[in-house]
């Protein structure tokens, strides 16, 4: 049967409108927070941290990681809060009754999350990029890492939104998964400066590869090979997508 293109496009537009109507909360606030991190950490640690990158200052090292971390958090927040909200309000029935299929729903939610993540990333780079003086070594790697990592977290957000029956559950997802993984991912330091056990642990954290690969896009080199980062990020995305599509196709927790 033919897919419902207008249905997909409408849902995408609606999801964009949802965060657009509260841009101060959904874009401005996270950008400001991230820029404050940049300011504070750069002031405190500039010159004291060995980045492991020749000719790259700590502030330059820090910015790409912060941008990616903000992308990940906002991609996750957009899908998870939208779904959880419409479940709690009950208005999700209007979507579930409509002739919109699992794939269309998946793509629309992920698409809107990517739009928000892109806005956040561009705003951060526009404000801080010129001040810090960031090179761009490989735009394709940047784009690929942004799309794969942003989508993976958007999909994880859909899963969290489906599984959560209360806002508390969503907060738990955020506090016990997203925040620890993003802080233990080498945003603020090079993992080479870590004790061996943490060094090993970092290499099992998909967020580490997302950030490292994104950094590669700017500097042309990073802690691990870009292919390893792309592989981990793509693998994580596929895993999330399989789980999420399985949930959407079977109606897991959405259609009792």
């Amino acid at each position: 049967m033919s897919p419902n293109q207008l249905g997909f496009y409408t849902l995408l537009k609606k999801e964009v409108m949802r965060f657009w109507s509260v841009l101060a909360q959904t874009v401005t606030a996270p950008v400001l927070t991230a820029l404050l991190y940049l300011l504070v950490f750069a002031q405190a640690l500039q010159g004291r941290v060995v980045t492991g990158y020749d000719g790259i200052s700590y502030t330059q090292f820090l910015l790409p990681g912060l941008v990616m971390m903000t992308v990940l958090q906002n991609a996750f927040a957009n899908t998870s809060s939208s779904l959880a909200q419409s479940k709690v309000n009950g208005n999700i029935v209007f979507l579930l009754m409509a002739p919109i299929g699992p794939v269309e729903m998946f793509l629309a939610y992920v698409g809107a999350a990517l739009v928000r993540a892109l806005l956040v990333a561009l705003a951060m780079l526009a404000v801080a990029g010129p001040l810090v003086g960031l090179p761009i070594a490989n735009p394709f790697a940047l784009l690929a890492m942004f799309l794969l990592a942003g989508s993976a977290l958007a999909v994880l957000g859909i899963i969290a939104g489906i599984v959560s029956t209360k806002f508390d559950h969503l907060a738990a997802f955020s506090n016990f998964i997203i925040t620890p993984l993003s802080f233990l991912s080498g945003v603020f330091y090079s993992v080479h400066s870590l004790p061996p056990i943490w060094f090993t642990a970092s290499h099992l954290n998909p967020f580490f590869y997302m950030i490292d690969g994104f950094r590669y896009g700017f500097f042309g080199h990073a802690d691990v090979s870009i292919w390893l980062s792309l592989g981990w990020t793509a693998g994580f995305f596929v895993l999330m997508a399989v789980i999420c599509l399985w949930m959407l196709f079977t109606g897991y927790k959405l259609r009792k």
Binding site: N4, Q5, L6, G7, Y9, T10, L11, K13, K14, A98
Partner: peptide
């Protein structure tokens, strides 16, 4: 209008 769009109506 959004609801109509879900049903493929413009």
């Amino acid at each position: 209008r959004i609801q109509a769009g879900y049903y493929g109506c413009g």
